[in-house]
Amino acid sequence: MVFDLMHASMGVPFVSLSRPLQIRPLLEARASAKVPAGWAAIFVKAFALVARDEPILRTLYAKWPWPTFYELPKSVAMVAIARVVDGEECVVAQRIAGPDALPLAEIDALIRHAKEAPLRDVPMVRKMMLAMRLPLPLRRLAWLIGLNFGRQRASFFGSYSVTSVAAYGGGELHAITPGPFILSYGVAEPDQTINVVLRWDHRITDAAPIARVLTRLEQALNTEIAAELRGSRQAAEPKPIRAVAT
């Protein structure tokens, strides 16, 4: 799978922008949540919230039947998940459609399911393993079809990817996929910042809109996402019972 993925990614002209985001309100809200969502779920939803108002983040470049840009009606996330299977480390993907409309708890549950459930119970893994059993010429044909028809591309590869090594100590990760957008994040620092790297297909947009996207991402983390985390805490707390005199 990794060999095929790297082969499909070779021709994508990626550019990257890295920036520390100030996330004090988010950290405070997450610390007070009874069951805080994982960082992957937080970034999956935050990026989709930004993409809801930024059509460029829902745009794909497809080559068939002729080179064109294809704008999706909603975002589709692909999350890279590290796990161990039969003593071997591997990476699997979890597809999450329309994450901007899903509760954080549901996004987090989907990611945890892909990380912990038996592989046969993860639909995306089953689809992936079925494709990997094909002979090389048929696999390459399947990848070409999946990558170059706009409507199918989001189904197979999503409109953006989220990956990180923060669980293993952080670091600035410049991942490679067929694109068009790849978001990676580090660990929360003592100064209440978190470093984010956004890589994108330069055929779709240039750096100026992406700089604006990172500013909007910081806002989404500290407003919509923080508010949802605070709301989940309040929902988990039992309401006081008021005594009524008779």
Rank of each mutant, 00 (worst) to 15 (best):
V85K: 13
V85F: 12
G87C: 07
G87S: 08
E88Y: 11
E89A: 13
E89I: 05
C90V: 06
V91H: 03
V92Q: 04
A93G: 10
Q94Y: 00
I96V: 10
A97P: 00
G98S: 12
P99I: 02
D100H: 09
L102P: 02
L102D: 01
P103A: 01
L104T: 02
I107D: 03
D108Q: 05
D108R: 01
D108P: 04
L110W: 01
L110N: 02
I111M: 07
R112F: 01
A114D: 04
K115F: 03
K115Q: 14
E116G: 01
A117T: 06
P118K: 11
P118A: 09
P118T: 09
L119N: 06
R120Y: 11
V122L: 06
V122T: 08
V122E: 07
M124Q: 14
V125Q: 08
K127H: 13
M129R: 15
M129F: 08
L130N: 05
L136K: 14
L136F: 14
P137G: 04
L138V: 06
R140S: 09
L141F: 12
W143K: 11
L144D: 15
G146N: 11
G146I: 02
F149L: 15
Q152Y: 14
R153Y: 08
A154P: 06
F157Y: 15
S159D: 10
Y160E: 05
S161N: 09
V162N: 01
T163A: 10
T163V: 12
V165E: 10
V165C: 10
A166F: 08
A167H: 11
A167T: 08
A167L: 09
Y168F: 15
E172P: 01
L173N: 07
T177H: 04
T177D: 06
P180V: 10
F181V: 11
F181I: 10
I182E: 00
S184H: 03
S184Y: 01
A188N: 11
A188Y: 10
A188G: 09
A188W: 09
A188T: 12
